[in-house]
Nucleic acid binder design. Structure first.
Length: 469
RNA sequence: GGCGCUGUACCCAAGCGGUCUAAGGGGAAGGUCUGCAAAACCUUUAUUCGUCGGUUCGAAUCCGACCGGCGCCUCCA
């Protein structure tokens, strides 16, 4: 039984999709005004992991991630760089897709864009005005928070208390400082669309209501995002959607902890960030994923290169076993008796852990236990039935690869594979001869100098493996 | 000011009232294997969970106070 910590109730609840085996899931995606940073990446990777685990469970997941491609930051950047807002958005949309692919994120079912849904947005705003939940003041349309009695139910905020502490610049046009823009009247040199209220563009929150409704329906299963979106963004989405449809908007709200740096939230405005690109240039996607999944999604996580390196080191246990399996399966031995190994226990340990609100750190601990147990078998008996290796491979494919994407059975083909690998093989065969002749000085010299060149080698019984480091 | 999260070994981190004399990873130390390495395996590395009280037969887990860290209330994943 899968349970999910639901922000709406503040409790763990059993997950019951509206229409099983289908699951509808919406995650707030990027505003495409810059490269995303590793903190943003955390959200993308956590939602990827959640989606993958739901699929592991047999659900058919419709996973929608929006792209905010018109907004103040994009406009600001376009003015600064003297480009059109759509050029800026296109550039960083493309960069977004490049980066998530490198991070081995499984593509969402749909990536709807705000600018592709202007008519849906206008229809939704009209609906809200007609029902008295919104008002138009000189081409600016605002949501009337006071009209929505459940306002604050997600974030636990009370409207009267908010007003007290609010440092919002008071906009006299609004009836209430908490009211937020649904439609922003066009200014000079700003992108705009025609609407019943004149030229303008959508406010930030309305796009998510419009797009999630269009692609997932009035009520859907899971809506997720970073904790900083709880208020006001998700609170406002609820207000908009539920006022418009009269139905519950979302059944399960999930919120992710921040990625901190020096114990402070990583953010663009603080300037204390690393882009995912920068990190990907130094570390493989698997190491980044491992680093992130070794902490529970809702907890804050402090970023440090040491931590990524520790994760990468731990990952070697996976790759070493994968290499071993690959080499065993390339020369299968059916002869040995079938190995006695309790796969079902590991599957159920993995599942019961992940079923508990996606406890990935504990699930990864299960995987390490599994690896240790497999290695112990291998150590005990020199020759094992290939069926054992096949089942081991299948386990890793379903869990470590299918859910976490932290290793792979496919060999990465390096760009310069041709002659380079052949030269290494040549050196290794010379070294093998040297070893046979007990010329260990030469053998060690070859090993040391290969290592200096970034090639680590490892002798096994019948052959020598190498990998580039 | 309001609301919320958090403090576990050298570092990261799970733990959701009893199986905790507390998983897992990194690091460190010793051993087996190996020509030597590497990998793998074995052993060791918190009688203790920020501090002090309380509830309970029983608490890292619940309650209170205090100390420290963070976040939201304004764009932010």
């Amino acid at each position: 039984m899968l349970v999910i910590q639901n922000t709406l109730s503040g409790k763990k609840e059993e997950f019951k999709p509206i229409n099983p085996p289908h699951v509808s899931m919406y995650v707030c995606g990027p505003t495409v005004y810059d490269y995303f940073h590793i903190g943003n990446a955390r959200s993308f990777l956590i939602s990827d992991m959640i989606r993958r685990y739901l699929e592991y469970k047999g659900y058919n997941v419709k996973f929608v991630m929006n792209l905010t491609d018109v907004d103040d930051k994009i406009i600001h950047k376009s003015k600064k760089e003297n480009r059109s807002f759509s050029q800026v958005a296109d550039t960083f949309t493309q960069a977004f897709f490049e980066d998530i692919e490198k991070l081995k994120v499984k593509p969402a079912t749909l990536y709807p864009k705000a600018t592709g849904h202007i008519s849906e947005i206008i229809t939704l705003i009209s609906n809200l005005i007609d029902n008295g939940f919104a008002y138009n003041i000189d081409g600016n349309v605002f949501y009337n928070v006071a009209r929505f009695k459940d306002y604050g139910k997600l974030s636990g905020k009370k409207t009267d208390e908010l007003e007290v502490g609010a440092r919002i610049e008071i906009n006299n046009e609004k009836l209430n400082p908490l009211d937020f823009a649904l439609w922003k009247k066009a200014k000079e040199d700003e992108p705009s669309w025609n609407s019943p209220w004149g030229k303008g563009r959508p406010g930030w929150h309305i796009e998510c209501s419009a797009m999630s409704c269009k692609h997932l329906g009035d009520t859907f299963d899971i809506h997720a995002g970073g904790s900083d979106l709880i208020f006001p963004h998700h609170e406002n989405e609820i207000a908009q959607s539920e006022a418009a449809t009269g139905k519950p908007f979302v059944n399960y709200w999930m919120h992710f902890g921040f990625l901190n740096i020096n114990e402070e939230k990583m953010s663009k405005s603080l300037g204390n960030f690393f882009t995912a690109r920068d990190i990907l240039a130094k570390y493989p996607a698997e190491a980044i994923r491992m680093f992130l999944f070794q902490t529970h999604y809702a907890s804050p996580l402090n970023f440090s290169e040491e931590a990524i390196q520790a994760a990468q080191k731990g990952l070697e246990k996976f790759t070493n076993l994968v290499d071993k399996i690959n080499s065993e399966l390339s020369a299968p031995s059916q002869a040995a008796p079938m190995t006695d190994f309790d796969f079902p226990t590991f599957y159920s340990a993995f599942e019961s852990t992940m079923d508990d609100d996606f406890n990935s750190p504990k699930a990864i601990a299960v995987l390490f236990d599994f690896i240790k147990e497999v290695n112990r078998k291998i150590t005990e008996s020199p020759s094992l039935n290939s069926g054992f290796y096949l089942k081991t491979k299948e386990f890793l494919e379903k869990t470590a690869i299918g859910v976490f994407g932290i290793t792979s059975f496919e060999k990465e083909v390096p760009a310069s594979s041709g002659i380079e690998d052949k030269l290494i093989e040549l050196l290794l065969s010379i070294r093998a001869t040297a070893k046979k002749e007990k010329n260990f000085t030469l053998a060690d010299q070859i090993r040391d100098e290969l290592l200096n060149l970034g090639v680590a080698i490892r002798d096994t019984k019948d052959k020598t493996l190498f990998k580039k480091v």
